[in-house]
Design a protein around this nucleic acid. Structure first.
Lengths: 340, 340
DNA sequence: CTGAAAGCGCTTACAG
DNA sequence: CTGAAAGCGCTTACAG
């Protein structure tokens, strides 16, 4: 061992007076070695403070024990708890998560996933951007085991973890209708997102089914809070104003809440509110919000399991797992004024 | 190339009709190669969809272009934005962050950092647990460039990024005193944390300096919200109850807010509140809170810079960078009732 | 039970 | 400008 540099298995073998192969075998418990030599190797390794170079192992074994995770961002409670859950699962199984951020940009997603592939991750968990075509092609071309989480409905090449957005929206509307609401407003952020589209479709078909007893409007807030405020102003001060608002994500919820607050419109007295996604600190908002909660732990566990099985059996038929997210009824929904 | 397997540089060279060395040179732009061969190699690489195996590169070059980041957790706005900032910095400089979670446990911290070292990260950014001794020893023994962020005051072996907790606390107390507050309550979570200790010390010495004009109590909430509530109950309903509360972190702030809310104690009318750490969704809390904001972006940028310079010049003298976190005055602090 | 040797996929002096 | 070859630190048949 050159002085001051990191000890290798060669140094261990030398000090123990055995061959490199033998040293490797005792260190990995991969063959029976005489007790005498065994102890010699263990002792030498300890004295030298030897840690195997995982790069070399990975290269030799064509297995890194690293799985890649690509998500849009991290500063959102949903993603944060997903990472934590996945991290714990991976560690407990001797793996390590290497996470990259797409920032929601298809190009960045492609670049980051490419970097994961270059680092030879054993598998990939992807929460796709709006247009992941090239990323998916790349992953498929390299035959990397992968599972796609949500946002994509049909994709023959990969295992899928899906959330049942339609059923969830149905549950929301049902809840509001039972309370007596007839005019709904759905505030979305990006109408092009599959998730959002599914929710809108469900809402519309329920309106149709109701044969006139239910009406619904959908407004988008592509850019700024200001846009939203203007649109809300045009809607909420009319005789036929909606009596219940549904928001499609946390950001929207925040904006709507602030708008209502600033105009002193009380929840649920003046208008009911249902939010998709649990809010961090949601307990502090008064009143506590009725929300559709994402089953984060389920999503992580399912994705992990699918990935492990895929790595095990690359040729097995692809699978789709549908997960349920549930309505949590709190104080922000109540019967509308008209029916009280 | 065996059918179906990942193409290597050997496959590229073969297809281009050049030696492996030459292929490597054009791919890395590391030597002048005739235009003809150059184009041949580029074409072959594109056709084969070749991506260099970073494991092999790293092994050969003894450089992974990966830096390790060890933090307690991720589902806290402070850590989340730290990760995002560090991630962006690293990518822009051709590196990749590999992040591990200590969960606040010294043992887990040791294990995870050991795994980073086994993977031969080029450097480590560590936000230490309460007792990082063995982790620090490990890092030092392996001569891995590292920078420690906050929570540690003196440590000769590493570069340090510090936050000026004493000055921040001084600023808080000064603000409250100028408003007319004389009886303060400091609610902490873990009194053993260096950060907390520094704040408590500063508070106490300011009380001493005030020569009786200022009093302060400190209560800890080691375990449950219930503990805190009991302690608060014993303090807030007396004649000499504190007129201003300072909370040491977001969790505490949440608990205190809920307690005050449940007893209908109004902020800032009945009691003023200053919180360490900005809250996510803090804008929704009414009134908006006066907080001490952590300079996340600064912390990330400074840590990154120190690390890069350390990797560049391992023998340079160790450095300590002191960063400032500032008081953001909002509506949760006002003069106490008595002085109105 | 043990060791010598090939090989994982690269980079990089070294000759020519 | 180009190629043959050594070597990064491991694991793993293969002989003995």
């Amino acid at each position: 061992m050159k002085n001051g540099s990191v000890p290798t298995i060669k140094d261990v073998a030398l000090r123990a007076g055995v061959s490199v192969g033998t040293a490797s075998h005792v260190l990995n418990n991969t063959a029976v070695v005489s007790k005498a030599r065994h102890d010699l190797v263990v002792k030498a390794a300890a004295e030298l403070n030897y840690r195997p170079n995982q790069l070399a192992r990975s290269l030799r074994q064509s297995k890194t024990n690293v799985v890649g995770l690509c998500i849009p961002m991290i500063s959102s409670a949903y993603f944060a708890s997903l990472i934590e859950a996945l991290d714990e699962l991976s560690i407990s199984q001797g793996h390590q998560v290497m996470q990259v951020l797409s920032g929601g940009s298809p190009q960045q997603e492609l670049d980051r996933v490419e970097s994961l592939i270059s680092r030879r991750v054993d598998g990939i968990v992807l929460m796709p951007t709006t247009d992941p075509t090239r990323t998916l092609d790349l992953i498929a071309r390299h035959h990397v085991p992968a599972v796609i989480v949500d946002r994509i409905q049909h994709e023959e090449r990969f295992d899928l973890v899906l959330l049942d957005h339609q059923r969830a929206m149905r549950e929301v509307v049902e809840h509001l209708r039972l309370l007596g609401h007839e005019r709904l407003l759905f505030v979305v952020r990006n109408p092009n997102l599959i998730t959002t589209r599914l929710r809108i479709d469900t809402l519309r078909s329920m309106v149709t089914e109701s044969a006139g007893r239910l009406t619904a409007q959908v407004i988008g807030t592509p850019n700024e809070a200001q846009d939203l405020q203007d649109q809300l102003k045009g809607l909420l001060w009319r005789d036929d104003a909606p009596t219940a608002i549904i928001t499609s994500n946390s950001i929207n919820t925040l904006w709507v809440l602030r708008y209502l607050q600033s105009w002193n419109i009380r929840i649920p007295h003046d208008v009911s509110l249902v939010a998709f996604d649990e809010l961090p600190w949601g307990e502090l908002v008064s009143p506590p919000l009725t929300v559709v909660r994402q089953p984060t732990a389920d999503v992580a566990a399912t994705a992990w399991q699918l990935l492990m099985e895929r790595m095990e059996t690359p040729t097995a038929p692809k699978r789709r797992e549908m997960l349920q997210n549930h309505l949590v009824v709190r104080a922000s929904t109540s019967p509308p004024i008209s029916s009280r």
